[in-house]
């Protein structure tokens, strides 16, 4: 059997985290190829619905990454809003039977290419340990089973 390769969806804000991911590239810092990045203008744009839909569609993990607290946010305070929302959503995930560790919020600045890569490495490792998302197993059962 092939090793479990988690699929992770990353919602990255345009100004800091996405730029940080770009810098990881420019600096050729290698990290596991498990993340699929979706660019949003602000981490505050990430609707809980997006995250739930990602899990429903088979994501094993979801990363939301934005500008550092307190004041790096390009839109002043979008990151605070994202933070509050994710913390609440983590609780909600438990009710769906999804381990809250599958959802992460991280702050990555435009000069932290290294940090971005580390976050992806860590997260990929952690989710590998958790195994495939319980929701994905259910959903795939429904669709293909």
């Amino acid at each position: 059997m092939t090793e479990f390769e988690p699929k992770i969806v990353g919602f990255l804000c345009n100004w800091c985290a996405y730029a940080g991911a770009d810098l990881a590239g420019v600096s050729r810092i290698q990290y596991p190829p498990n993340i699929r990045i979706v660019r949003v203008m602000c981490s505050g744009r990430v609707d809980p619905v997006f995250i739930l839909e990602a899990f429903r569609s088979g994501a094993d993990g979801v990363l939301v990454a934005g500008c550092h607290l307190p004041s790096d946010c390009h839109y002043i305070s979008g990151n605070f809003k994202a933070h509050r929302r994710i913390m609440m959503l983590k609780k909600l995930l438990l009710q769906f039977g999804i381990e809250p560790e599958r959802l992460r919020i991280e702050w990555v600045s435009a000069s932290e290419g290294d940090k971005f890569a580390t976050v992806i490495k860590d997260m990929t490792e952690e989710i590998k340990k958790l195994g495939p998302s319980p929701l994905k197993v259910q959903v795939e059962g429904l669709i293909y089973g």
Partner: peptide, 29 residues
């Protein structure tokens, strides 16, 4: 255009043009 209002609207009345829910969800799926 940050989208903070859109992702907080309880009735889904606010959409963010060019980063609409449909567009982002399609991208995720």
């Amino acid at each position: 255009g940050c989208g903070v209002c859109g992702s907080s609207c309880p009735t889904g009345a606010i959409s963010m043009l060019h980063f609409t829910d449909d567009e982002i969800l399609a991208q995720v799926r």
